[in-house]
């Protein structure tokens, strides 16, 4: 089962410019664990502590905010699109 994870620009310094990846997993937690394992430093950017996202980052599955589904336990299926959307301040 593969889902597409989109890496936003502000986090691409951690991924050597990689803008998306296919990840395996059955829920958001396991997908993000794979992302954090693959890219050093990503865990600090996404998580305040294990199991708790930073409050300046939101995760959307197919454009729906996981906070209003099952949060990190939100199930994902083949072909789902996971967007990491951090607060950005430029302007």
């Amino acid at each position: 089962m593969a889902v597409k994870v989109r890496i936003p620009t502000p986090l691409r310094s951690l991924t050597n410019g990689v803008d998306s990846l296919d990840a395996l997993g059955t829920d958001v937690q396991s997908v993000l664990a794979e992302v954090c394992q693959r890219f050093e430093g990503m865990d600090k950017r996404l998580f305040k502590q294990p199991g708790e996202l930073n409050r300046f980052v939101n995760i959307y599955v197919n454009n729906e905010d996981i906070r209003f589904m099952d949060n990190l336990s939100t199930p994902v299926k083949d072909g789902d699109d996971i967007s990491i959307v951090p607060a950005i301040a430029g302007g």
């Binding site: 620009t9 502000p10 310094s13 950017r45 930073n54 409050r55 300046f56 939101n58 951090p86 607060a87 950005i88 301040a89 430029g90 302007g91």
Partner: peptide, 25 residues
Amino acid sequence: CIFETSPPPGMNPTCDTAGVLGPTV
């Protein structure tokens, strides 16, 4: 409701450190 807090200072790049393209603006 969307972003309860801002990132800590220095965590995210800014337009002056990472750049920004005119069409984006």
